[in-house]
Design a binder for these strands. Structure first.
Lengths: 154, 154
DNA sequence: TTTTCTGCAAACGATTTGCATACAC
DNA sequence: GTGTATGCAAATCGTTTGCAGAAAA
């Protein structure tokens, strides 16, 4: 299992699936494709993915989308992100430490989410992995506070 | 607005509420009390809080609990944490940088959540605050990967 | 051919909301 | 008094599940 330093392709998907006894299906392929093609769009929900699929003629059921997102996360191809807006969101896992990690500032008042770049946690990740025995795929950092607007309103 | 370096008390609650035009109510007081008295129990869901309330005679409706948790988060007294287990969880915001931040390792396979101590992000927090204009109340870090058990199963 | 996967629709469960009443200020 | 909060029940909405048919390996 080579550490993957590119965005994921169909070949990675096939390998990771069979490695764990899962099957390659056109639906799973399509759903991964959506993420690769929309890697600019961050944090897509199941609904978002479902809608993008329908736009490109793919008649994939919503339940299948949910199951695939779950599976792709388990495989380390996607990562789940939550902003407290009531739905799970997913992104391609940028396993390459040279690829910028982007993290989030969340306003506790207006719930606005702002992204920022940050890549200072890789050393910490290594330490944690050694101490815990985890094989770490990714990390996520969120800062909670009041955004500029909500500060000036009070 | 002094930086609060203690766990929150009723006086903090009253101050923060009136500061923003909200009212002090026995329900809000009771709910905060639950968190202070159970500060050992991390990440409680609305249901958890509701059940603890009922055990201590408080007849507070579940909807009120939800509304209060949301409000207390907005006030920076609680912080919301999510583990992808389908419900939002809350903890007292430990605003004191000397109080250990505890963060989470989440297994993408079995969904196990493991806590760890970490307090290396305070400098980063200061930088981010300056650059973004956010007034930061707290931060949260999650690492995703495979736990020991799930690694050996594959 | 055996096991896994999909699609649909129904079930579920956490959270939200409308509204009448009660309460804080 | 006035505006906000509560409680209940109903509504909502994201997500999961059961099951029969379809498709990988």
């Amino acid at each position: 299992m080579s550490e993957n330093h590119q965005l994921f392709g169909v070949q990675d998907l096939r390998a990771r699936l069979s490695e764990r006894g899962y099957k390659m299906t056109p639906q799973r392929k399509e759903i991964l494709k959506i993420f690769v093609e929309h890697s600019d769009k961050h944090h897509m929900s199941a609904e978002d993915v479902y809608n993008l699929l329908r736009k490109s003629d793919s008649e994939i059921g919503l339940a299948t989308v949910y199951r695939a997102l779950d599976l792709l996360s388990e495989l380390g191809i996607l990562v789940q992100v939550e902003f407290g807006d009531g739905c799970a969101r997913y992104e391609l896992n940028t396993a390459d430490p040279k690829v910028h990690h982007h993290h989030h500032l969340i306003c506790v008042k207006c719930k606005r989410v702002i992204e920022f770049e940050e890549d200072l946690l890789d050393d910490l990740e290594t330490t944690i992995a050694e101490e815990s025995g985890f094989r770490i795929l990714n990390h996520e950092v969120k800062f909670f506070g009041y955004c500029k607007d909500c500060q000036s309103q009070s």
